[in-house]
Structures are given as C-alpha cells and as structure tokens.
C-alpha cells in the first residue's frame, strides 16, 4: 500500500500509527504539502481527487479520507478484529461516534495548530473554544469510564480505531495553544495509548518510554 504523506499532519500520523501497530508495511510518498502545495497540483488530484492528505492507495482504490484509511487497515489487516469489531454493531456505532469527535477536533484544535504552525487562515479563538468544549466532553467520558473500569474510548478490553483517531488530534493540540492541563483523565488515557505495544511517535510526540527504539522518517 502507498501512503501519500505529509508527516506534520495529525491525520497522516494516524494512518502511520495504526499501520505500525498492525505491522503493515506502507510505501511512503512524501508530499511537499507546505510550502509547496503539491496536493493542489493536477498530478496529485489525478491520484487523489479529493486533494486530501493523507491518501492511501490500497491497490484497488485510493482512499482520500483518513478515517476510511483507518477502517480499511483495521478491516483487512487485523486478524484479531480488535481495532474494528465488525461483528459487534453496538461497538461499531460507538466507534463511529468517536470518529466524528475526532473530525470535530481536526476542524478546531487541528486548524488552530496549523494556524500557529504554518499560518493557515483560522478564526483562532473560536477554534480554541470549540477544542476545549470537545476536550471537556472527552474528559467527562474518560473520567466516568475510569470509574466504570473502562480504559478506552469504547467499551471493551482493547483499544479501537476510535482511540487512534482521537489520540492524534489530542496529542498535538498544545501546538495550537490548546492546553491539556485541565484534563487529567485525558492525560492518563494519552499515556495508555502511548503504552500500546508497537506504538510509534512522530515529530512533536514523545515516547512514553524514552529508551524505546527511535522512529524513522519514512
């Protein structure tokens, strides 16, 4: 599979992270997204008509939506079925609900981060306010979950793609001026995700265990 990648984007990290956790090799094609705007070129639009980054070429289709890429990886490359429990409709529904939260975080915390990082236009205060509203929602869910013995976003012993999708947005949010200081349950959950066997970092994300092997560029 080929991943059209711009490493600083949280959504690209989500795909690389899940692929690493599933031990699925990806052929990385690095795009000059910024400042080169390579994703707006005709060549790239021919490959990925949405012009979105990342895009995952599965061999049979090019998935221009990062969450579709997560679903594809989990549905086809996870023999355990833990990341996307296709046979469990209630958990599937809950996963989709959290994927929507991840998307809302991308449009608030993620936009704030890209505004601070590369000057992408944004109504910055509105983005931050919305990000905090979502983080409070996440905090409540995780805090009550801890009391109910639930460690991950969705009921069950193992993490799902919901954890990956929300994690990549939350772990980079401080770069957009959205502090996680007031969300202790979120911070504990972040450490749980970072503790998953096979977890890989990206620039801006530190490993839970500093002696763990370093990550690679491509």
């Amino acid at each position: 599979m080929i991943l059209y990648d711009y490493p600083p984007l949280a959504e690209c990290y989500a795909v690389r992270l899940l692929a690493a956790l599933l031990d699925v090799p990806l052929e990385i094609r690095s795009l000059d997204y910024y400042p080169g705007r390579e994703h707006e070129t005709d060549e790239y639009l021919d490959i990925a008509p949405l012009g979105s980054v990342p895009a995952l070429d599965t061999g049979t289709a090019v998935l221009g939506d990062w969450q579709a890429a997560l679903i594809h990886l989990a549905a086809h490359h996870d023999a355990t079925g833990q990341w996307l429990p296709l046979g469990d409709p209630d958990r599937l529904v809950a996963i989709h609900e959290w994927l929507a939260v991840a998307r809302a975080l991308a449009h608030s915390a993620g936009v704030a981060r890209l505004h601070e990082l590369i000057g992408q236009p944004a109504v910055i205060e509105r983005c931050r306010t919305e990000a905090h509203r979502l983080l409070r929602h996440l905090e409540r869910h995780l805090w009550f979950g801890e009391r109910a013995g639930r460690r991950w976003l969705v009921e069950g012993e193992q993490p799902t793609i919901a954890d990956i999708a929300v994690f990549v947005q939350v772990i980079l949010c401080e770069e957009g001026g959205v502090s996680r200081l007031d969300y202790p349950a979120v911070r504990r959950w972040i450490d749980s995700v970072r503790g998953i066997r096979g977890f890989v970092v990206t620039s801006g994300v530190l490993p839970l265990d500093p002696t763990a092997p370093v990550h690679t560029l491509a």
Partner: peptide, 17 residues
C-alpha cells in the same frame, strides 16, 4: 528541494515541543 524541505521540517518539528 522537496526532500530538503521534508527533512528540515521533520527535524524542526522535533525541536518545537
């Protein structure tokens, strides 16, 4: 130039936090 940029950005984003 794109490879130079990608490498430099990778390094810089490690410094940022």
């Amino acid at each position: 130039p794109a490879a130079l940029r990608a490498f430099q950005q990778f390094i810089f984003l490690q410094d940022k936090p």
